[in-house]
Amino acid sequence: MSKQIDIKDLDIFYGDFRAVDGVQMQIKPRSVTAFIGPSGCGKSTVLRTLNRMHEVIPGASVSGEVLMDGNDIYGAGVDPVNVRREVGMVFQRANPFPTMSIKENVLAGVRLNNRRLSKSEADDLTERALRGANLWNEVKDRLNLPGSGLSGGQQQRLCIARAIAVEPEVLLMDEPCSALDPISTLAIEDLINDLKDKYTVVIVTHNMQQAARVSDKTAFFNIAGTGKPGKLIEFNETSTIFSNPDKEETENYISGRFG
């Protein structure tokens, strides 16, 4: 239950503006891939194309191919809704549904997708997803309270639980720890390590130590200047990127000498 993603010649546009240019990448199943790079270099944009979320922004379009186990998710007749059921996503800001309780939040994906659940199935799924997100012990006594009452770190793990409750093949994470304290970050990093056994995980992060800690492979994106498209500079084993990168640009970025 996890898929390989092949990105071929991917160009991403916002209106006429070319935001990302010519990305080539192969993401292996059951691995963690980190996207690093300066702000505005297009790493989040690339991430969002992997489950067709970038289309939510008016005027956004792509050219190129994104193959999930060989099927192009931009092929003719592909329904983005079906793609998103296979590729879950966790966002930078925790966004539990404010009208729903913790339990309803976890079950939201399943319920909104028209699957009826019996009470015991719902309870099982809630527990499984919350345990999977390392949150069960903290919330098991208040499953019926609103999700927005949790702390920031707990809310983010609730969002992860919500994403894995629909059992996707791939899990995308867009800077999931950027608003969290080190302890919550550690909890989520541990979680990513566990998730890798079942899912293909792609994570965007600004924190290079985090990329080094959690990922198997790392992609470094950079941008030549404002108004220029972002480019994939180097895609390599994480250990190589952080010890002996192929490109000088990568070396400069990870060692803090920018430019």
Binding site: M53, V56, F91, N113
Partner: peptide, 14 residues
């Protein structure tokens, strides 16, 4: 917030 709509889309909700 757009976040909520995106969260829902990302769960594969039409």
């Amino acid at each position: 917030p757009m976040d909520l709509r995106e969260a829902s889309y990302a769960l594969g909700v039409p």
